[in-house]
Amino acid sequence: MSVTLMFFGRLRERAGRSSVHLTLPDHVSDTTALRRWADQHCGLDGALLSTSVQIAVNEEIAHGGCPVRAGDEIAFMPPVSGG
């Protein structure tokens, strides 16, 4: 299953890229598993594991373990700060 991961702010900086197209292993089928897997696979060094990092699947915030499907666009967002 292929998905696109997006990183913002300090996560983008740590990942060294703003997005990546990846094929997920079979056991990664929801956002809870994806958070752990992507943290290791993309070299985030624990940054994705923080509860302050929100996940959006196709622009909808994922609460708890939201299913991940082929073609999904999944964004990892640290706390926002504008103005």
Binding site: G9, R10, M77, P79, V80, S81, G82
Partner: peptide, 21 residues
Amino acid sequence: KTEALFWKKELRGDDSEWIEP
């Protein structure tokens, strides 16, 4: 300041810090 999708980094010479509300 608290909800819009912006991420802000303060630059302090050679150092920098991501800012949160």
